[in-house]
Amino acid sequence: MSRWRLPLLLSTALVGGGATAAELKWDGFFTSTYSITNTKSTYRDIVHDDGSFDDSRFGLHVVSDIHPLWRLEAQLFAAGYEDNYATRLDWGFASFHLSERLNLKFGKLKYPNNLVSEYYDVGLAYPWIRPPHEYYSLEEPSASITYESFSGASAIINRRSGDWDLVAQPFFGEVELAESDANISKFIGIKLSASNDLTELQASVAQGRINAEGHELDDQTKRIASLGMHTEWGSLVNYLEYAVTTFSDSEEARTKAGYITLGYHFGHTMPHITYAGFDQESGWGQQSVTVGVKQMLNPSTALKLEMQRITPQLNPEAGAEMASGLFMDVPEKTRVNAFSIAIDVVF
């Protein structure tokens, strides 16, 4: 499907909502980020030693209840690191609210596993300027099987037990990787979560077959098992995630990734610290410590500052001129400092 066909279909359905004359509701988010490193290097293709605004992004969300049981919903997205702010459909689906306990979704869906995958680009929604890269990245060891939304279906099954809300979210589909001929087929997984006012717990598994002709991982199945916990006990905030990623025919590519974040709310100000890392059997890896502060300027706007100390490990598979940690090149220093400032807005 072309980049614009699905948005057009959705907008036609939304605007021409038939006899229901469904109302369109809009929301949006925006993050403007400046990042710079202290040594000649290119980090994740978006942070350079001469500074960059490429991590800035913008999203526009539209929803319409076309029927008491049916809702159409879509989100457009643009980012500096993606073809210079070319707008694309991030996700778009129809959801069927069968009952309080069961919701079905069909269309282009966001990968649900892990704590922040579904709102990875929405800066205001979490403490960091970006969620920990060692865990949430596009690289093959990532605990995310894809950033790209998948075409398929998902069920959200709810149940309440005492103070806890229990949710099972199975899903299946297929991922067309943008700007390449690669895709992920036989994509299937499930997220289980339990949450109350203070704590959110998650366990998830997913797998998909990689079809990328010419790539060493072509025709291999990537499997991910992950655990996550997010707590807000009074003013104390904690995020903790851990994942193991394996490939069907490559023991060397087996990767463990995880991070822990601790933060504390002092009124509208939240300082936080994060330790994150990934470690692949091949020797490839990276660790980082990030210290930051999130200052809420008003309920819809946050100012963030972060200092990150990154220790990359060379990927021997890639050769001396190739990637080290999540850098695109080998940095001149063995430890790299990155400084970032961002402003997040939702509207």
Partner: peptide, 18 residues
């Protein structure tokens, strides 16, 4: 309220509710 806004931004922009 600012934490309520953060809560809703998670749900809204992931398609889980407004």
């Amino acid at each position: 309220l600012d934490r309520i806004k953060v809560y809703w931004s998670r749900l809204t922009f992931s398609g889980h509710g407004r």
